[in-house]
Structure formats: C-alpha cells, structure tokens
Design a protein around this nucleic acid. Structure first.
Length: 421
RNA sequence: GGAGAGGUCGCAUAGCGGACUAGUGCAAUGGUCUUGAAAACCAUCGUGGCAGCAAUGUCACCGUGGGUUCGAAUCCCACCCUCUCCGCCA
C-alpha cells in the first residue's frame, strides 16, 4: 500500500510509476474521493464532539437529534473510507528509479558469471537423466496427483537435504534465523502481502476445509497454500514495532511452495521444471529504510556466493517495470545455465518491497525519535527443484552419470551418481 | 470433538451503562540525592487521524465485526484467538 499523503503530494509521479507497472488505477479519482472523505470526516468529528457533550450533560433530547444526523453522515463516511481503502489496495508498489521502463523485453542482463559448460556429446535433459538415475519420477506422480507433480527419489532426496543443510549452515553464520513456517495461511493475511491483486487466483491455491454444522450448513475455513516461504514469514511480524537494535532481522526459510500455474499450459511441461509443488529455501529481511540498498546487495552477494560454491554458471537480470510483481520496487533475477535448453532460466529472484508490505501489515521500527515502516526484502536462496535440474544437467558425464558438486559430497556420501539401468 | 475460564495503553492487573478524560503496580526515560551504584523521592510515559506555526484542542481505538442506547471497556449477537481439564491423534 502506498501512503495516501505521499499520493496527495506526488500524484503525477505515482500515476506515471504505476502506469509503468501496467496498472490503470486512476489517481485523480482517488484524490477526489479522498478530499470528499476528508470534508465529511471533519463534519462527523464535530458531530461526535457535540454528541459527547450532550451525553455528558445527559441532554437526551439534544442527543437524539444529533444521533439521527450523525448516523446518516457516519454511514456515508464509512462507504467513502471503504472505497478509498479498496482503491489504495489496488495500487502496486512504485518501481525504484533505476528500474528499466517497459515490458519484459526491456529486462537488462547486468552480469554473467561462470563459463558455459561445453560438452563433447549431446547433453541430456534433467528428466532423461533423472529417470535413468532413478531419482525423478513424474509418471507415477501423474498417476497419484496429476500433471506437474514429481517424486524425488534416492540421491535426489539426498541432494535436496544436502542443499538445505549447506544453505542453513552458511546463512546461520550470517545471522539468519532458520525457520520452517506453516504453509496454510489465512486469507486476510495474504491480502497484506499484495500478491492477490495481480491474478492471485491464477497463481495460488485456495483451500476450503468443509465442515457440517448442526443445522447441516456448510462452514468453511478459508486458507491459502503458501506460494513461497515469504508468504507465511513476512506476516509473522504484523502489527509489531521493532526496536532499532532488533534490525536487520533475517530469516532463512525452508518451505514447500504451491503454485496453480494456471495460464501456463504448454509451458515447460517436461519434467519438474514447472510444478505445482516444490521446496524452496528463501531469505527474508526486515531492515531500517536507509539500509534497503545495502541489504539488496547483501542478499545478491550471498546468492552469488552460493551459486559459485555450487559451480553453476548464471546471469543476473534486472527486471523492467512491467515484469515486477505487485509489491516489488526492484527485482533482480538469477538465471542459471540449463544445457539442454541452451539458455539461462530463472532460478532465483531477489526483491525489495520497500515499505509497501510493511504499511499493509503495519510493521514498524522505533527510531530514536519516530516510528517508521520497515523495509522488507526477500530473495531465493535455492528453489530446490530447479537447482537439482541445474546440477544434473551441468554435472552430467558422457555415460549418463552425474558428478556431485564438491560442496555437497559430504552430505550425499558419494562423488558420482550412476545410472541404475 | 466435549466442559470450563479468559482476551483492557510494553508486561501484570482493576473496571462490568453516565467522575473512564481507562485506575494501580512493574518496566522504561529524565532528574534529585550519592565518591559511584542501589534504594528512596519527583517528573515523563499507548496507537492512529484531523485542525493549528506552536502550546494545544479534538475524534477514534479496551481481541474482530455488527447491534441496543441520549450515552458502551461495561449490555446483546456473530466470529477469531489463548489457557485448563477430558477425548482422539504423530
């Protein structure tokens, strides 16, 4: 959510900024509603004051008269307030200044690291490898759960837990608090995050837990399945005020993530690249506003360092305004080289939501003299499925076996995974 | 799932239709005293909005949302959450 005061003073800038993000909310309309609301609010306040005076004097006659008038105005005021709130919730976060303007074709590659792996044979894709190593099974998953699901088996499971252990150890040393969150989240909580305004129902699962009450009426508990660890971790601190010494507060989160992937029919249908359920290790930071940039750089540096530890080649991409998510002010994607596709594919995403989520969720920091909304950042440490894909494909040998990256060997207990058939 | 007790300004507690403009204790902050500290004493001390240069004034907020009333922390309805006991379960 943006600050209404900020919108009042910077109407033009806001309109331009959100248009660049693809939003068509009419700022002028909001400001008109806002000034109407302000006027009415003044009148209501005055009436309430009169009412309070009359009540103190026990002047029943006068009180009755005021009540009548007040009820009418309060009703009108409430509907104006609801309207403004509704409109404000529809406004996405503004992009930072250096974000390229335009749609995803304007995304900028800002850095490439690592040599692209050369093979003297035609590299197999992750599914072919996974099946012959007997570590990935999507056929059986389809039988049980449908398309876009997968089983990880044998060494793939060890790879997953090895990655988790590796990241937890590394980030714990950096002061991150390890966390496994609930994956079912209350509806009103998810609204604070600002992900539902843009095709929320297409992206996330809505869970209904039906129950029959005594009179046979269906009651339901409305919960969402977390799309990423951020969803259940950011709202942990809803309505809280950090003291300055508590910040930065950093979490490293292991969470299963659920995506509907509606509207992606025909995209990445092979294997486990795009699935409805996957595990992810995610970083979330709460920082003082002035530390935003420093924290972005830190998260990015950590991701790069871990990618280099794994020996994977990647590029960094600065997303253009039109490609940013609703709450994001700046996003850097990490794309990892996938040999079978002969291109870099998105494996990580590092974003700042500035004070956008903090305002919606009312999360502040007590400075020396004032309370300010914190800045909240999130970044992928590893999307485990896609990381396993990258490892399998980049570390494959001519005979179909896969070398285990050095850093993970101690967790897997071997240096190479050999085909079972 | 059953039975009971609760949710009040950081924490603990009081208040159960009109002096609540929410009391008290603790904690916190500033000060007095002290060589320094403790103790004692004095003072300050919830959040958000609106008006105002400001002092200040005013409105809202007692789990959440409705309702009753001239007047609601207090009464009514619904919901959420916490605790205790029992049952079930990992």
């Amino acid at each position: 959510m943006l600050d209404i005061k900020f919108i009042r003073e910077n109407g033009e800038t806001v309109q331009k900024g959100i248009r660049n993000k693809g939003s068509d909310v009419d700022i002028k309309h909001i400001l008109e509603t806002d000034s109407k609301q302000k006027e009415l609010s003044l009148s209501v306040q005055k009436l309430r004051e009169e009412r309070n005076v009359a009540a103190r004097e026990k002047n029943i006659e006068k009180g009755k008269k005021i009540k009548e008038k007040l009820e009418k105005e309060e009703h009108e005021l409430r509907s104006l307030e609801d309207r403004i709130k509704e409109l404000l919730l529809k406004i996405p976060n503004l992009p930072l200044k250096d974000v390229p303007i335009g749609d995803e074709s304007r995304n900028e590659v800002i850095k490439k690291v690592g040599e692209i792996k050369k093979f003297d044979f035609e590299p197999r894709d992750h599914l072919t490898l996974g099946e012959s190593l007997d570590i990935i099974d999507v056929t059986k998953a389809a039988k049980v759960s449908g398309s876009r699901f997968g089983y990880l088996k044998n060494e793939a499971v060890l790879l997953e837990f090895g990655l988790v252990q590796f990241v937890m150890e590394k980030l714990r040393d950096e002061g991150f608090i390890p966390l496994i969150p609930p994956v079912l989240i209350k509806r009103e909580i998810t609204e604070g995050l600002g992900y539902w305004q843009q095709g929320g129902n297409e992206n996330y699962y809505f869970v209904r837990d039906y129950e029959l009450s005594e009179n046979e009426q269906v009651k339901s508990l409305d919960l969402y399945l977390a799309g990423t660890g951020e969803h259940s971790v950011v709202p942990m601190h809803k309505d809280e005020i950090f003291s300055e010494k508590d910040l930065p507060k950093r979490y490293v989160i292991f969470s299963s993530c659920f995506r509907r992937e509606a509207g992606t029919y025909g995209k990445d249908t092979r294997g486990i690249f795009r699935v409805h359920q996957f595990d992810k290790i995610e970083m979330v930071s709460f920082v003082k506003p002035e530390d935003d940039r420093k924290e972005r750089e830190k998260l990015q540096a950590l991701v790069e360092s871990m990618m280099q530890d794994l020996g994977l080649s990647y590029q960094l991409v600065r997303l253009a305004t039109g490609d940013l998510s609703f709450p994001s002010a700046e996003t850097i994607d990490v794309e990892t080289w996938i040999p079978s596709q002969k291109r870099y594919r998105e494996t990580h995403s590092i974003s700042t939501t500035t004070d956008f989520q903090a305002r919606r969720l009312n999360i502040k920091v007590q400075d020396k003299s004032e309370k300010k909304f914190v800045h909240i950042l999130n970044g992928t440490a590893f999307a485990i499925g896609r990381t396993i894909i990258a490892i399998l494909e980049n570390y494959q040998e001519k005979d179909g076996s896969v070398m285990v990256p050095k850093i993970l060997q101690k967790y897997i207990g071997k240096t190479v995974i050999k085909p079972k058939k």
